[in-house]
Amino acid sequence: MARAVTNRRKTIATAAAWTIGFLIFFPILWTVLTSFKSEADAIASPPKFLFFDWTLENYATVQERSNYFRHFWNSVVISVGSTLIGLAIAIPAAWAMAFVPGKRTKDVLMWMLSTKMLPPVGVLVPIYLIFRDTGLLDTRTGLVIVLTLINLPIIVWMLYTYFKEIPADILEAARMDGASLRSEILYVLTPMAVPGIASTLLLNIILAWNEAFWTLNLTAAKAAPLTAFIASYSSPEGLFYAKLSAASTMAIAPILIMGWFSQKQLVRGLTFGAVK
């Protein structure tokens, strides 16, 4: 049972945790702050923390010069698209594994996991050549295909662990009540698994949004999502700190917010249920 904690101890823990939390978060905070500075203030020495002329011009410039929203839209299409397709493929598969387990179910699950262990660089060359020959290079379709496939094992696994928690009785009741397989999955399983499906969706969008191997290697300009767009700042243009910060802030903000909502499910998803 919990017991009374001395206020002194609690104060020390609070101070230490907040300090360390602040330090870890600081690079992000600094990026956000810098995005509101003028370029001169951004490289001022000594650095200016809060007292500078706040401006939004960097955001405007980024959009104007690099068509930020096109890359943003690419990121949205690629991450949401690959996640939705992944879910559509994974929900039936996870249903089968959770509710009609057979002798080989475990082997299939482990094998799916093993495909995730394949280092991307091991298959970079053939994928690149296949994409080049089929015209998928630098297209959103191509990236959606790759990201769907690399994240499919995670989606199946997460859904599987959530579905396992739904009593099989209820699905059997639906079957007795005359539901077809389609109705059973559509009207009974899916609504009951909404929280699990939602967190799978969220985590997978995050992973796809931040994926930076395939997106960098398979795109040039047209289909480049934000990962690749930001990478283009590694050229001397990156020295414009305020603009780099504005672009970075816009690239990470949506995901950061989603991530904060899904942090609890993250553990389960990324450890394949090994830690709950």
Binding site: P167, D169, I170, E172, A173, A174, V188, P191, M192
Partner: peptide, 8 residues
């Protein structure tokens, strides 16, 4: 069913 198996 024993667990009632109601649709929650």
């Amino acid at each position: 069913f024993q667990s009632y198996a109601l649709y929650p």
